[in-house]
């Protein structure tokens, strides 16, 4: 933080009208607070920090569900068993992040502040596409870090009041923004999760059915990807699941997710590969 903002009188920059973007304001007033404004020495920093892994999201009529596993890894080490990687971005959207955990958490905080800041200054919320584009800009700024192994890849989902449906956006490290239909997944276990959702997802699932489908997908990801954590039945650690409808973001309670996870595990006792899909 700059000395000026600590000083007794507000810096003239604070009183200058102009930007409604918090990140833009920070870049002039306290650039050292921005995650991507740090100079790194040459070489890869990929092995220095824990990585978060798999995030899945799927839409249902009237909303969208996002879930993330709880594992962070550093090479072959499990760095954390109960990390949280799905966060509410504002009242009607959430963001889940795969990649370098420390940077990801910082970027989520910046994104949350960015949305709230705009809302307070302008007196209205950004459109769903506006929010998705702001996140793309933050990711784009991180490209230099990504090239040194500190990539952050988010998945963004929310309820769009104008279209009256849940929407999902995925990103690449260059800030490319892609709208996804029905479901999507990011992170190291995402291939397996997406394959699983392909067979399990139906458009007419309700919120609970959709939640079960994403928990199944995370189970399948954990089954085949060592960096994704499955439900931890001994420690009772289960995926973080957020549901967004026109009533806003709601994180499902631990008991609710535990109930779904226990049913999934019980069914897999009989058939370890999960529910069988019809051949034709």
């Amino acid at each position: 933080m700059t000395g000026s903002s600590h000083g007794p009188r507000l810096d003239p920059a604070f009183l200058t009208p102009g930007t409604s973007s918090f990140a833009e304001f920070l870049s002039t007033q306290a650039p050292e607070l921005l995650p991507h404004r740090r100079a790194l020495p040459d070489g890869s920093a990929a092995d220095l920090a824990p990585h978060g892994t798999t995030i899945v999201a799927a839409t249902f009529p009237g909303g969208v569900v996002m879930a993330g596993d709880r594992r962070a890894t550093m090479g072959n080490i499990i760095a954390q068993r109960d990390i949280e990687k799905v966060f509410p971005a504002d009242e009607y959207s959430c963001v889940g992040i795969a990649g370098t955990a420390g940077l990801a958490v910082e970027m989520v905080r910046l994104f949350q502040t960015e949305l709230e800041h705009y809302e307070k200054i302008e007196g209205t919320t950004l459109s769903m596409d506006g929010k998705a584009n702001r996140l793309a800009a933050l990711i784009r700024g991180n490209l230099g870090m990504a090239m040194q192994g500190l990539a952050v890849v988010p998945l963004f989902a929310g309820y769009d009041h104008t279209q009256e449906q849940g929407r999902i956006f995925s990103y690449d490290v260059t800030g490319g923004r892609y709208e996804e239909t029905a479901f999507h997944s990011v992170g190291s276990g995402s291939l397996f999760a997406r394959g699983s959702l392909k067979k399990l997802y139906r458009e007419d699932l309700d919120a609970e059915g959709c939640t079960t489908a994403v928990v199944q997908a995370l189970y399948d990801a954990a089954d085949d990807d060592s960096a994704t954590g499955g439900p931890d039945v001994t420690r009772r650690i289960f995926p973080v699941v957020g549901v967004i409808t026109d009533e806003g973001y709601q994180r499902l309670g631990d008991t609710e997710v535990a109930g779904i996870a226990d049913r999934v595990i019980a069914a897999r006792m009989n058939r370890p590969d999960g529910p069988a899909a019809a051949l034709t």
């Binding site: 933080m1 507000l10 502040t113 200054i121």
Partner: peptide, 14 residues
Amino acid sequence: RIAGVRLADMRGYA
């Protein structure tokens, strides 16, 4: 007001 929002958000973020 805007200065206050900026100050508060910046402090809360830092």
